[in-house]
């Protein structure tokens, strides 16, 4: 087990959710569901976050903010799209100000189903994202070792955007 898998830091952004999934995300952090037992801490700072929890769908106003937060997160990082809206727009898919799911703006690693998503499934999503983080870290380490062997400059580990 790598250290990143045991202590992933979370950041949450409400893209254009109805609040239903947001309060369930908060419920995950409080005593009954308690995501902290997996080593998770919520942070408001993208530069310290490993897992990005996004609720709701994307529109033209929040897409740059979503992208901005994602770009500021250091590698490796994982994105969890929570709820039906984050997948496709959900019940609001036909609304004029909904551009689609989170995947239209940033790459998504885990989808959590539900409208609103239940805390149990959000926790499952976070644990899966932590496993993906571990895989990504391993892949990153391999790429760096290979680069060193070949005498290239190693890819940046903590990058603002590009790997």
């Amino acid at each position: 087990m790598s250290s990143i898998e045991r202590s992933p830091w979370l950041i949450h952004y409400d893209a254009s959710s109805c609040n239903g999934c947001d309060i369930e995300v908060l419920a995950c952090l409080t005593p009954v569901y308690d995501a902290e037992r997996f080593g998770c801490i919520v942070t408001g700072d993208p530069k310290q976050a490993d897992i990005f929890l996004v609720t709701g769908s994307v529109n033209h106003l929040n897409a740059p903010i979503l992208k901005n937060i994602y770009d500021q997160m250091p590698e490796p990082k994982a994105v969890v799209a929570i709820g039906a809206c984050a997948y496709s727009g959900g019940v609001f898919a036909e609304c004029y100000n909904v551009a689609g799911g989170v995947a239209t703006t940033i790459p998504v690693d885990v989808y959590v189903p539900g409208c609103a998503a239940k805390p149990e499934s959000i926790l499952d999503g976070v644990v899966r994202a932590a496993m993906i983080l571990k895989e990504k870290e391993k892949a990153g380490r391999k790429a760096r070792a290979l680069a060193r062997k070949e005498g290239r400059r190693s890819p940046k580990r903590r990058a603002g955007g590009a790997t």
């Binding site: 959900g90 609001f92 036909e94 409208c115």
Partner: peptide, 24 residues
């Protein structure tokens, strides 16, 4: 930032089905 425009959705949904949009 979270404007969806769901008031206009009432033109596309049956009035009885719109309740589940209103709830959201």
């Amino acid at each position: 930032y979270i404007h969806r425009g769901l008031e206009l959705l009432v033109e596309k949904r049956d009035y009885a089905d719109y309740v589940h949009v209103a709830e959201r």
